[in-house]
Amino acid sequence: MERRAVYRNKVLPWMLLGPQLILVLVFFYWPTSQALYWAFTLEQPWGGGNLWAGLDNFLYIFRDNRYWGTVLRSAFYAMCTTGLSMLVALTLASFVDRALKGTKIFQSVFIWPYAIAAPAAGVAFRFIFSPEAGLVGGINEIWPGIWDPSTNGIQALGMVIICHAWLGIGYNFVFFLAALQMIPRSISEAGAMDGARPLQRMFDLQLPLIAPTAFFLLIMNIISSFTDSFGLIDTMTEGGPVGQTEVMVYKIYVDGFKGLDYSGAAAQSIVLMLLVIGLTFIQFKWVERRVHYN
């Protein structure tokens, strides 16, 4: 038995939707249509003309092994940031959920990182990880030259991943905590009475019950790692050294704005957009179906 509210007025719903629709049109559909057009043409950087290029721009990036390197790096980046961030958030959330001393304080403290803008965090972390003056740089006093993300690409990538994961902890924490607290106490208590230790209750009861939330977070984190990494990378490494921290979104910026190759960057944007749409589709298809647990 479904009850539906229906607007009798034909104009009112459109007026209510209007502001949102205009925002989406101006900030999403308009730029997307431009990017789509550029992706199939050769666009002059200063405007003033373009030539139809067909699929050339796409073929160009798909033939480029550096582009595939960027794709692999983005996948690695997504896996590491998502895994790290969710694992730490889940650990913190399960501690907070156990109602230990000071829980109330930690509930809010752990959310703070989410309130920090990525570029600001990037600047702060650049100092923390600075090889000469930073906190981590102290290691160079013991083993000189062992830590230098300005020349070592692997260290630079690791540094950005840690920072990205740290930023996401707050967001993940809130969802995990809410999910844990939605589990009826009686279930945990019943488990406890049957002799299950906290860790066992965690794995056998709580984790399966919060799986839909975890899945939702997984998708959100992956999408965030694809799109939100720009601010961090731009402030921390600018894609370097030797392009070893260039992920897909940063390569779009480098090629388009620094290299003035608008068409190549537009083609890459379309690929990235399709990827994010795909992930969103998966999320709706799976999560929407499983999120109700009665």
């Binding site: 950087p45 020349t151 070592n152 690409g153 370097g240 050294p241 030797v242 392009g243 480098v254 090629d255 620094k258 290299g259 003035l260 190759d261």
Partner: peptide
Amino acid sequence: GNFGAVRQEVIKAMQSVIFD
């Protein structure tokens, strides 16, 4: 043309030799 992008390629080559 797009000399900025060409410069980036040279920088990458120099960095990959010197650092890597």
